[in-house]
């Protein structure tokens, strides 16, 4: 059944160790467009370099895949990266569809973010701060040190275990699926979850803050409010699918980014935002 860490090859251990250190790069080059994509790329670099050492085209595709939008809490970040390492391995060896890797990432980032924000921000940090505040209020610097230890150590231990077991459990699970010949079913199930979570995240994270008031015979109507009363955040998915159609037409991300920037500023200048 599940392999033990000691049974992994020296190369696998080397990659996992390197990924642990690199998984601390979560927030490097954070952008609103792709959030933690740069950190994800850096974390997966040793895996990509090793798996696709002899295949430049596949390697470039893998880098492109992990330059896509990614966002979760910094600790489960390590688990998903390690799991993706297992999936990239299967992509190379057994032809696990690249789309499935994307879908699993999309499906996991939302719920893990919510879950671990609650665990670390709303539970462990509160406990650590509670103990630290008590000491600091009396002017004791030990409070700060206690806070750092109580808040940082649990994060590091969890991250360390996540890097190990994401890969081991992921590899075992995917191998089982391949043996039972259910890869197509899994691909479809992953796609259901991935798309549903992308839909949910579009609703909660993409905002088109339309604030356009028109005056019809003395009655002031706010177009943004009217559209939202038809359906909440209606413009979010409209913008999203417009952008998808532009990408399908071959527009470069640079054009889209500059287009949105210009649209936002011009829109605000004429008063629709």
């Amino acid at each position: 059944m599940a392999r033990k860490y000691n049974e992994l090859s020296a190369e696998e251990k080397r990659i996992l160790k390197s990924m642990y250190w690199r998984s601390h790069s979560v927030f490097w080059g954070f952008t609103m467009t792709k959030m933690e994509a740069n950190g994800f790329t850096i974390t997966l670099t040793p895996a990509i370099e090793s798996i696709y050492a002899d295949d430049l085209d596949e390697k470039r595709e893998a880098y492109r895949r992990h330059q896509n939008f990614f966002n979760t809490h910094a600790v489960p970040f390590a688990f998903i990266a390690s799991l993706v390492y297992a999936m990239e391995n299967e992509h190379k060896k057994n032809g696990l569809p690249a789309q499935t890797i994307e879908n699993v990432k999309a499906a996991l980032m939302g719920p893990t973010a919510g879950m671990f924000d609650s665990i670390f921000f709303n539970c462990i940090r509160i406990i650590a701060a509670g103990i630290g505040i008590g000491l600091c209020a009396q002017g004791n610097f030990l409070g700060t040190i206690m806070f750092i230890i109580l808040y940082m150590v649990p994060q590091e231990i969890t991250r360390f275990l996540f890097i190990r077991y994401g890969y081991i459990l992921g590899t075992e699970f995917i191998d089982q699926i391949f043996q039972s010949g259910l890869m197509n079913s899994l691909t479809k199930a992953a796609s259901v979850m991935g798309l549903m979570m992308i839909g949910a995240m579009t609703a909660s994270m993409v905002r088109v803050p339309l604030n356009w008031e028109i005056n019809i015979g003395g009655a002031v109507t706010n177009i943004g409010d009217t559209l939202n009363s038809i359906f909440p955040n209606l413009l979010g998915p409209i913008l999203l699918f417009f952008l998808v159609s532009q990408i399908r037409k071959g527009r470069r991300p640079t054009q889209l980014v500059l287009g949105i920037l210009a649209f936002g500023i011009l829109g605000a200048f004429v008063g629709i935002f």
Binding site: N68, M205, I265, A268, F273
Partner: peptide, 21 residues
């Protein structure tokens, strides 16, 4: 304007992922 485009930028990241999956 900068605030509005900031909240719309996230749509690009989602659009690239959506186009893929």
């Amino acid at each position: 304007g900068l605030g509005a485009s900031s909240s719309m930028m996230t749509a690009i990241g989602f659009a690239i992922t959506t186009a893929m999956i």
